[in-house]
Amino acid sequence: MSTIQAAEKPPEDIEIPKPELSIVVEFTGGLEMLFSDQRRHPLSIPVTNKEGNPLTIADLIEHLCNHTMKDTRKELFVLDDHLRPGILVLINDADWELEGEEAYEIQAGDNILFVSTLHGG
């Protein structure tokens, strides 16, 4: 833990490679169209956020917007700094509301699924 923190506070936070977490992020219900039409994204993400705290779902959403999403229609994923209404987040196949929502701290090996609700019938 101490080594991670040491690595987290370099004098200039660019050159030194940060420790990363391997997770799988998935999109379904049409959201995959915002992410290069690819449902499954194995990702390596920083262990901590800008403030040096453990990476949460909120941080992951920001990371996805800045690094993974190539589409310009950010508003279809994020609205007013939060996930757009109508998108469910499943952490290891469980509703994120069972896990602390945006504050959930991401663990190595987590599977995070973003589902856009469908309305057709």
Binding site: L76, R84, G86, S116, G120
Partner: peptide, 20 residues
């Protein structure tokens, strides 16, 4: 309980637009 807020109207895609 599952969807407290409706999605923005512009993000709702019908079968007519999106196909099914």
């Amino acid at each position: 309980c599952v969807f407290p807020k409706p999605p923005p109207a512009d993000s709702v895609v019908s079968c007519g637009e999106g196909g099914v």
